[in-house]
């Protein structure tokens, strides 16, 4: 049962992370391939602040604020770029952040990572704290879901979709597209930072190896598999992917073959991404296009 709690917590953290990416990738059409950077910024900031004696609620607020500021800073230079160029810029941004985590040893302890990240006293630590932590994570995931639903169903959300479909049309209709996209990136980054914060305080140990391209692929897979541009899509994707990853651990594998499991898993993830794009680019849950067809 404890293990089941653990899987659920990881699923919910990833569902927050995937939903935040979905706002950018699914609703706004911004190919953010460096979303892990904001997850990492959230995790590191909160961990460092709370390790240095800042009260945890304050550390959490500081962390998501910093993630949002980083998102705005990334948005300003990159938003003039279209499509794949934005993808490269974000990918490079994530690599830069990774290098900073790795090399600023005085602050981040470099590759050794940060152990013993504290948790709030009322949650406690160890196995007995799992149900309470699950409740907190569930609360955060629900808030994220409702928030994103409200944002994307609002007039602002419709302008995001117009930008995704045709940015020139949005401009011609008098929309300030840069500002709209910047807001989307800031909200996405804040929520990714939140996911990172929960992750850091749940696992209680972080190192630069947790924030690499590997995790970007994983969260991208969650969004694409579940269905980008839909509300339940990323949540479904996150649950499917995490349960699949955890399920593999229970397959009895002779010890001499264990080293093949991780690469095979990676190959399967890559393969699913390719097949999804070829056969079902809309994902498991497809977006309702009722607005798109009426004026076509």
């Amino acid at each position: 049962m404890d293990y089941f709690y653990h899987i659920l917590i990881i699923c919910l953290i990833y569902s927050i992370f995937a939903q935040s990416l979905n706002l950018e990738l699914g609703f706004t059409g911004l190919y953010n391939f460096g979303h892990i950077a904001f997850f990492g910024i959230g995790a590191y900031t909160s961990a460092l602040l709370s390790l240095n004696g800042v009260p945890i609620p304050l550390a959490v607020v500081g962390a998501i604020t910093l993630a949002g500021i980083a998102g705005a800073l990334l948005a300003i230079p990159t938003l003039r770029l279209s499509g794949d160029y934005f993808g490269i810029a974000t990918l490079v941004f994530a690599e830069m952040i990774h290098l900073i985590f790795l090399n600023e040893r005085d602050i981040t302890r470099g590759p050794m990572g940060l152990p013993n990240i504290p948790r709030p006293d009322w949650i406690g630590s160890g196995i007995s704290s799992l149900p309470l932590f699950l409740a907190v994570t569930f609360f955060a995931a629900t808030i994220t879901f409702i928030l994103l639903r409200r944002i994307t169903n609002s007039p602002y959300g419709r302008s995001l979709k117009v930008i995704r479909e045709d940015e020139f049309v949005a401009q011609a209709l008098g929309k300030n597209t840069s500002l709209i996209k910047t807001k989307a990136i800031v909200v996405g980054s804040v929520l990714a930072g939140l996911a990172g914060v929960i992750w850091a305080h749940y696992i209680t140990y972080i190192s630069p190896a947790d924030f690499t391209l590997q995790e970007t692929i994983l969260v991208l897979l969650c969004v694409v598999l579940g269905g980008k541009g839909t509300h339940p899509g990323p949540v479904v994707g996150a649950f499917v992917i995490i349960f699949f990853a955890e399920f593999i651990r229970f397959i009895p594998i002779p010890s001499e073959y264990v080293r093949f499991v991780a690469p095979l898993q990676g190959m399967v993830y890559g393969f699913i991404l390719v097949i999804m794009m070829l056969k079902r680019p809309q994902g498991l849950i497809s977006e309702s296009r009722k607005f798109a067809t009426t004026n076509a």
């Binding site: 690469p263 990676g266 993830y269 991404l273 390719v274 794009m277 680019p281």
Partner: peptide
Amino acid sequence: VYRPLRQSNPIAILIASIGLSYMLRNGIRL
């Protein structure tokens, strides 16, 4: 991969190429 996707939208090709790269890289690891 790329020929069947040539007529589809750019993001599909981009995601497919990321997936392909991840698959081939893990092939090396395997």
